[in-house]
Design a protein around this nucleic acid. Structure first.
Lengths: 123, 123
DNA sequence: CTGAATCCTGAACGATACTG
DNA sequence: CAGTATCGTTCAGGATTCAG
């Protein structure tokens, strides 16, 4: 496995296709938001749809599949009728959550800075 | 978990349009990669093009403009001929870099985990 | 309720050509 | 070298429908 020295041999930028693929899976709006909300608690599909505002049925399903495939999210199906499916972050998923929260936190903190930076730029 | 008062009034998920816009600006593949490479050193446009493998001329320009507008990247033009333009991370940009590096580091560390998770899923 | 499949539109993107 | 503009294509993603 590739160890941490980030910008060494297996650099993400010059990446082999797999690394790039993984990165693309998580470096997108919906995936990040989904992980963020699942970080708070386990959620059902329909709950996720409400929590992640603006996500479509299709995009939610699609991203959940990807995240499940990558082992970041666990999908538990209750064989009831109607079906009940719960999504939870896996252990590795929790690790990623920390990093994502850092980004979210940063965004919050620099909210007004960005606002004025834009005003300056647009002028 | 959540460090800053993230999930309070201005929650990213229920966000007003500006917050969502900002988040979209940075939560995408190219923006993250650009910030990542600029975190190492100041780079010229053509150098960036080489460092960020696979990015097109157009996408690079586009993302740089956005990042500049949001005040994450500083653009310095040398009025020479031929023109020389250098891109640097701003102070706030450096803050975001830390968060991004966390994600990159996480990806590296879980590289093989994801690989096997996928193998399991696909079976 | 969850999820898969289909269709269709608009946005993203790459290629190319042109300017300073 | 850096940047803009245009064009054509591809593809993401929304709406809808059907199934378990």
């Amino acid at each position: 496995m590739v160890t941490t020295p980030l910008h060494k041999d297996a650099d993400l930028r010059r990446a082999d296709s797999l690394a790039r693929e993984i990165f693309s899976d998580i470096a997108n709006k919906w995936a990040l938001l989904i992980i963020d909300v699942l970080g708070k608690r386990t959620l059902r599909f329909s709950e996720l749809r409400n929590e992640v505002e603006g996500v479509s049925h299709k995009m939610l399903t699609q991203n959940l599949r990807t995240l499940e495939r990558d082992g970041l999210v666990h999908r538990k199906v209750y064989p009831t009728v109607p079906p009940r499916v719960e999504y939870t972050l896996t252990e590795p998923g929790l690790g990623l959550l920390a990093a994502i929260d850092a980004i979210c936190g940063w965004t919050q903190q620099h909210y007004s800075y960005i606002q004025s930076a834009r005003a300056r730029f647009d002028a």
